[in-house]
Write a protein that binds this DNA or RNA. Structure first.
Lengths: 102, 102
DNA sequence: CGTGTAAGGAATTCTGACACG
DNA sequence: CGTGTAAGGAATTCTGACACG
């Protein structure tokens, strides 16, 4: 969970190099809630490697002609699908353990 | 091999926060060849998570009263031991495959 | 809508040096 | 030897705005 990949430590200039996106694009995707970096005391943005992966996906979708709000929607859908899936599995587990009780 | 952990992307200020070391200490350990960050075009240092682990180890050894050159020596010894070990295994593998040839 | 850019300012980092011990 | 600090400058980043399409 709390590993390297999730740790927000990379400045925007490096993210720009790693993703090939301009800093303008990266900041704009934040404005559209597609990524949420952390900030230092001074206010400079810090990203994680996970954010970089996310940005690459965003870049692909933008190339496919999607609009930022569509990308956000599909992210939200994915997230809620994940939660529902978790719940389903949990309930299934409980039912099974109920019937298998000796 | 070429994963997140080895990628040099973290600026010195963040490294300082993560390790608890001062930027002065971090730069000094570089001067003593204990860590070797990369640089951006502009010349600012970039570290990897691996470097951070290394710095934590260095910090421990410094607390134990070791001097930087001793730490460097022990690192070099480790490195050459690793290489010798690799060679030994390689030769062993070759001998075995020789005798097991049908 | 998504992105480039010039603008002015603030935060971050760099190096070489002096200080202390 | 290892580290703090003040100094001056350079690189990096920030925000809000205008522009184009």
């Amino acid at each position: 969970m709390a590993s390297y990949k999730e740790k927000k430590v990379i400045p925007i200039g490096t993210v720009s190099e790693l993703t090939g996106l301009s800093t303008r694009q990266i900041r704009y995707y934040e404005e559209r809630k597609l990524i949420i970096p952390e900030r230092t005391k001074g206010g400079t943005r810090k990203y994680s490697f996970e954010d970089i992966d996310t940005l690459m996906e965003i870049a692909n979708k933008m190339e496919d002609g999607l609009q930022t709000f569509e990308i956000r929607k599909s992210k939200e859908r994915e997230a809620s699908a994940m939660i529902k899936q978790k719940l389903r599995e949990e309930i299934k587990g409980q039912i099974e353990s109920h019937f298998n009780r000796p």
